[in-house]
Design a protein around this nucleic acid. Sequence first.
RNA 1: GCAGGAAUGGCGAAACGGUAAACGCACUCGGCUUAGAAUCGAGAGACUGGGAGUUCGAAUCUCUCUUCCUGUACCA
Length: 1029
Amino acid sequence: MPLLLGKQNMRYDFNQIEKKWQDYWAKNETFKASNTSDQPKYYVLDMFPYPSGAGLHVGHPLGYIASDIYARYKRHKGFNVLHPQGYDSFGLPAEQYAIQTGQHPAVTTEANIKTYRRQLDQIGFSFDWSREVRTSDPKYYKWTQWIFIQLFESWYNNETHKAEHIDTLVGMFKAEGNTKVNAACDDDIDVFTAEDWNKFSDVEKQKILLKYRLTYLAETEVNWCPALGTVLANDEIVNGVSERGGHPVVRKKMTQWSMRISAYAERLLQGLDTIDWTDALKDIQKNWIGKSVGASVSFNVIASEAKQSANSEKQVIDVFTTRPDTIFGVSFMTLAPEHELVSQITTEAQKADVEAYVEATSKRSERDRMADVKTISGVFTGAYAEHPFTKEPIPIWIGDYVLASYGTGAVMAVPCGDQRDYDFAKHFDIPIPNIFEGVDISEEAFASKDNVKIANSDFLNGLNYKKATKRAIYELEQIGQGEGKTNYRLRDAVFSRQRYWGEPFPVYYVNGMPQMINAKHLPLTLPEVEKYLPTEEGEPPLGRADVWAWDTKINTVCHSELVSESNGIYPLELNTMPGWAGSSWYFFRYMEDAMRDEAFATEDALKYWENVDLYIGGSEHATGHLLYSRFWVKFLYDRGYVGVDEPFKKLINQGMILGTSAITYRLNLIDISSNCPKSHDFTDEDLNQIEEFVQKYDLKIYISKDLSERGGISQNNRNEGVLSVEKEYLKLKKHLLIHFPELGKIVDGISVKTQEIYVDINIVELDYTVDIEKFLTHPINNSNTGLILFKEAGVFEVRMRQEKMSKSKYNVVNPDDIVEQYGADSLRLYEMFLGPLEQYKPWNTAGITGVHGFLKKLWKLYLGQDSLNVNDTEPTKDNLKTLHKTIKKVQEDIENFSFNTSVSTFMIAVNELTAQKCTSKEILEPLLVLISPYAPHIAEELWEKLGHATSISTAAFPKFEEKHLVESSKNYPISFNGKMRFTMELPLDLSKDDIEAAVMANEKTLEQLQGRTPKKVIVVPGKIVNIVG
RNA sequence: GCAGGAAUGGCGAAACGGUAAACGCACUCGGCUUAGAAUCGAGAGACUGGGAGUUCGAAUCUCUCUUCCUGUACCA
């Protein structure tokens, strides 16, 4: 009996349907996860967004849609799914905005979050919003501060390979001093005994402990960014400029909080083998950790006569080398210009040269030094070191190819085995002894470790790399001048930011020594300041806060003027924590629902949810967030606060959706009348006219696409090259003369540069022409009146380019518009349909009509003109086949994160079922469950129309049955020498011989063979027949 | 320089070593329409970046070259 539903219900009114179900989900808390469930758990997480003022563009939800599909799929599969969302809401942009406008970052952040939430909600994500986190919420950062305190109260024991409470270290100091302690610590540790320790003053003890703590205060050379007024971590710098904003970065010494992540280098490296991440990402982290195995070698400096009297103490240069086997090939040493020994060992004769060189390098920025890799420079110090085995003198040089920040800032140069040493030696005429058997080093160094034997090397002669390395280390240890050593490139991470909008440190200072506020008095909330800029004295913005001192008697903040030691009131730390503080542990916070005030997450919650099963986000976080999170988790694990030592079991990087930018060119006019050939006799009047013209129209003329081209001009030149209008830009000259007939001959006194200008993609038509009226009134041209557009053939055309979506490029597509016009289900399907999740792919709004049409077809499959099209008809064989091949494919696709192919599969299924005129509920009901993770709104609506009273979201995933796909015959492709010529329908139960006989008897086969006798016939039953010959 | 990845119609893409381009956009033609951005139907289009090898058979495996993307960079 067809159910009459009334015409108004029959239209696919996606806006109404989507709103209805989003409200339903919110009201019924459909996606609320339970912390006590018999179902197996599954934790799907997205990298939480920074809520920027620009809102979401269509690129942002890509990963969220993928993870949402997976989360919904897992619910259908019977899992208790945790799929939360939140905001990484501390950060620079809000603060920059606050500096410009005076608005409190909390206010703008709140507003931005509202926008994000609205945008996320309308896409229909199955987030459990009851567990939302915001890193800038004091209730949240209370625990970020708490973790900081735990780090401060911990040290890393290299014997037990884990972090321990600082008390165990103090215990060791008391009992036996620090001689037997094997800890991750600063380099400048002095040896002391238990007696010494017990005699040290309190401040001295604190100073020593600070060198061992996992977060410590130290004067470090940091990356200072003057424009941003803060220091940056290594991973926040790209090509020598700040990642955000592209501002220059300089080296500067400052007292900063650091995180001793280097203590975990080995475990961070080893842990990669235990997690399911892409090799690409693991490689990035491996490279960043940069483990190299080798030896440290000590070279004694030979005291020169001049120094001998002045300083009787023996000077030693320690180096790190990965090739101790080449120690007999050392012919000089090179120190970084910043190396502390440089000034001490330099001889009188070389002093001037060395000082000049050191001065020159210190002036060069990191960027210059990096950009200029080719130039070889260096200076001889006049000093010599003694070779540990041959006792020969080795000249000591300084050179800026040696980095102060890696290893010991000094190298033993083996020119025959290292290309940089080789180039340096050649350049300065330093001998290049050859220590490789039968290897020619007249042209370049021999850097390979394989297939070579060491020669001219005393006890190493005839040994290969492996054996020689072992032997060399052994011999060095015998004479006490070296040992085997492993070095890591990973540096400790600077943790202080001279910023306002971040977590305050729970730290006050007594006698200049940092003290932790007792955890029970947390959170220490951000104080109010009247401006978000540094103080006149150059202190961070918190230096402006009136109420920013700690009263240790009543454990509360108080007015800064009250600071007085006698009253127990001390100044608080003025720096704030970096952006990665809050994001390094937020995944644990989501696990907790009820007891958030009592713990960062309760033991029960942590035990139930363990860690993230699937994490989706961008690969740009490879060396930042993803490394720091692993570090904090390992630390929390060591100290027993969590039960897992990796945060993210499986990780997928979604690719970027690229926008299409529209580019036009603006003319920068240049007066070249004075450089013109003599044939142009410009009169004074001409010259005036040229000058006037240039002044008046400079940067006011835009040219259509073809006009920006001329023979042979490359894309790059178009940006900067000065083009002679006269010779090279004839078409443009014509245009100039048409527009400005008064120019006449003086046009030759004008040249142009072209500047790229972005045109808002929203005012560009599909055929690349620009809506000129809109262009002239567009905000980008606001300050510019009297613009002139050089059209061609009546239209103004732009050039297109695929690149990252960004506000400044005017190529952003807003999901709001898409949702309004096509619906959230269409957006979800289309984002998936674009291509493989991990790949970069361009966005093209026009293509969305494909998936939108599919949804309409789906709708029509279930609902006819005015009635439900679904009934209890027995399904046909074809119906079942279509359904089950769809189940199989979709399940495989979801599990392989191949979401694009399942969208195609749905299209095929709906096309087939429509053609089959299928009305069977037995088919159409399970089909809805398959589609529901991808297009949940339409699935819920049709599910309801089929008579269900509850949400489809926990309906069981249909079970695949092989039997419906079993065929009795196969349309065999018949190939000749590998090329398919025709097909032939044959029963599947035929034997190989029968198939061959049937094929050979076919007249088309005889036709193909034309009398030849085949050499061989390959028959693969159920697959193919290939005839060779 | 080093590491990783990619290259298939006009575009996005699909293809356990077995009928290359499914699915969709765009395009062409036609039906329905006053008209159509609506809808239905039909159609055209490619030897998988180049070269070599393994194989009965290669987009797929191996080698090599080219181009592009990403990461990283004087790391001793």
